[in-house]
Structure formats: structure tokens, C-alpha cells
């Protein structure tokens, strides 16, 4: 499972990535989780199973969906989950998004 997180400069999502990797490991899930700024993320989105946008760039949802060309689901992380760096919830949301396609 390959999860890509994107935010404005890739800074705060990189914080979240660390927590999510730990969470995935604890749950025994084999997952590659990366964080990138929006620009590069749009280039790489098709290499991943899901793209999760930080709430601060939720306006880019349309662009991201366009870049994903329907191949990769795109979701926006809920504000409260993002603020509290709720890795468990966000990981579950990502898994759900992959299942839904």
C-alpha cells in the first residue's frame, strides 16, 4: 500500500508521515508513506494508491483529481485529525479511500 501526503511545503505532513509509519508498523500493515509539497505530489500521484491532502490546501482537490486521472483516489484530511496528528484515524481513512477507489 502506497500513501502520499501533500501539504503546502511538505513540512507539516512530513511530521504526520513519521507518526503514520509508526502506526502502520504497530498494526502490521505493509505501507509506503511519503510526504511532498503540492507541486511534486501532482507529478507523482499516479505512482501511489491514494493521495491525502492537508486541509490547508483543500482548494487543490480539483487539480489533484485531474492530475490523478481517476487512477488514484484523492482525499482531504479532516482539520481536527490533522491538528492532533491523529495518525490512526488518517491511516484508516486512507485505507478506506483505497478500498472505495
Amino acid at each position: 500500500m502506497k500513501i502520499l501526503l501533500a501539504c503546502n511545503a511538505g513540512m507539516s505532513t512530513s511530521l504526520l508521515v513519521q507518526k503514520m509509519r509508526k502506526e502502520a508498523q504497530a498494526q502490521g500493515i505493509d505501507a509506503t508513506i511519503d510526504a511532498e509539497p503540492l507541486g511534486p505530489a501532482l507529478d507523482d500521484v499516479k505512482d501511489y494508491d491514494v493521495l491525502m491532502l492537508g486541509p490547508q490546501i483543500k482548494y487543490a482537490l480539483g487539480d489533484a483529481k485531474e492530475a490523478a486521472e481517476g487512477k488514484t483516489p484523492v482525499r482531504v484530511i479532516a482539520m481536527a485529525d490533522y491538528g492532533r496528528m491523529n495518525a490512526k484515524k488518517i491511516l484508516a481513512d486512507a485505507q478506506k479511500a483505497i478500498e472505495e477507489g
Binding site: 501539504c7 507539516s12 491538528g83 496528528m85
Partner: peptide, 22 residues
């Protein structure tokens, strides 16, 4: 939330404060 946010905050990253405090 302040405990979670203080380290990134020192490096001027504050999304945890903005969305978590909120």
C-alpha cells in the same frame, strides 16, 4: 496539544496549533 505542537513550533511549523488547538 501544546505539548505536541511545541517542537515543530520552534521551527515555525504550526499546523498542529492551527487545526488542533484550534
Amino acid at each position: 496539544i501544546a505539548k505536541l505542537a511545541v517542537l515543530p513550533g520552534i521551527f515555525n511549523i504550526n499546523e498542529p496549533v492551527i487545526y488542533g488547538y484550534p
